Simulated scan of single mutants.
Amino acid sequence: MSDPDTDKYRQQHKLRLSYMPWLYARLKPAQRHWAQAWQDEWQAYLMTMETISIGKNCFIAPEARLFAEPGRAIVIGDDSYIAADSVLHGPITLGNGVSINHHVSLDGGRKGIVIGDNTRIAAYSYAYAFNHGMEMTHLIKDQPVNSKGIRIGCDVWIGANTGIVDGVEIGDHAVVGMGSLVTKSVARFSKVAGNPARIIGSRNTEPNLLSSTHDVE
């Protein structure tokens, strides 16, 4: 028979992990044993029910909502975390070491959202890779929908309550300040903030210490 106190503790600890999933990697061996069994079961269910692939050592909160119909896959790299009350609708590709915090909303539209390795997206942020037409020839509900896709680079920090619109690319090592609305692409290493987001600084003080890809116009 299980210890009632242990059962209560585990339920509370599961909830804590769901909202603070970075704690999953810090669990002691005894805790990791039951937590990994819990996650293995939940992730197997997700991969059975949706078009989802999940890498090694990932944590996905059962309170998160992941939807991936055929042709709109969600791909999750190793060591990535998805916290409670997030909503992800594919196509979405997460690199390795990506952290999606609670109440984040991502919709890949037709062209998809791609997020690079070791990027952090803070709570209540959202990115929608589609847009509606606005011509007066049709009601808004009948307008055609278009999609360009969104790309977020490696080692990017998206601050809480940030919005990212369709067609935007955020370069490697960039930082987006809390409460920003990103309507144009952001160059690598840039610090941006505001509505609309504008450059307020740069992380590129020691460029030789960081690898990079291409500049974003």
Results as ranks from 00 to 15, higher is better:
residue 51 T to I: 01
residue 167 G to Y: 07
residue 51 T to R: 11
residue 28 K to R: 13
residue 122 A to L: 10
residue 131 N to G: 09
residue 171 G to L: 02
residue 62 P to W: 07
residue 213 T to V: 04
residue 51 T to D: 15
residue 20 M to I: 10
residue 108 G to D: 05
residue 130 F to M: 09
residue 175 V to A: 13
residue 198 R to M: 06
residue 57 N to V: 04
residue 74 I to V: 12
residue 159 G to H: 06
residue 145 V to S: 05
residue 135 E to T: 15
residue 161 N to I: 00
residue 53 S to C: 00
residue 216 V to I: 14
residue 193 A to T: 13
residue 111 K to L: 04
residue 141 K to W: 08
residue 124 Y to H: 14
residue 63 E to A: 15
residue 117 D to G: 09
residue 50 E to I: 04
residue 206 E to A: 13
residue 149 G to Q: 07
residue 93 T to V: 14
residue 18 S to D: 13
residue 12 Q to L: 15
residue 122 A to C: 12
residue 70 P to M: 02
residue 19 Y to I: 08
residue 38 W to R: 07
residue 124 Y to D: 06
residue 158 I to L: 11
residue 212 S to A: 15
residue 187 A to D: 15
residue 3 D to W: 04
residue 59 F to Y: 15
residue 120 R to T: 14
residue 98 V to A: 07
residue 112 G to S: 06
residue 46 L to N: 03
residue 14 K to D: 00
residue 110 R to W: 08
residue 137 T to W: 00
residue 35 A to E: 01
residue 134 M to H: 14
residue 61 A to S: 15
residue 46 L to S: 03
residue 159 G to L: 03
residue 191 K to A: 08
residue 116 G to I: 05
residue 16 R to W: 10
residue 76 I to N: 05
residue 210 L to A: 09
residue 78 D to P: 07
residue 23 L to D: 12
residue 17 L to I: 04
residue 13 H to C: 01
residue 23 L to R: 12
residue 21 P to R: 00
residue 102 H to L: 08
residue 63 E to C: 02
residue 158 I to M: 10
residue 41 E to M: 01
residue 185 S to A: 09
residue 60 I to F: 02
residue 87 V to G: 07
residue 83 A to I: 00
residue 109 G to K: 01
residue 153 G to I: 00
residue 127 A to H: 06
residue 69 E to L: 12
residue 187 A to E: 13
residue 55 G to C: 06
residue 206 E to L: 12
residue 59 F to R: 04
residue 205 T to Y: 10
residue 86 S to I: 06
residue 153 G to K: 03
residue 151 R to I: 12
residue 141 K to G: 07
residue 22 W to D: 11
residue 5 D to M: 11
residue 146 N to D: 11
residue 122 A to M: 10
residue 16 R to K: 15
residue 170 I to K: 01
residue 127 A to N: 04
residue 148 K to A: 11
residue 89 H to N: 09
residue 137 T to E: 13
residue 6 T to V: 10
residue 17 L to N: 03
residue 189 F to I: 01
residue 140 I to Y: 15
residue 122 A to H: 14
residue 217 E to P: 14
residue 79 D to S: 12
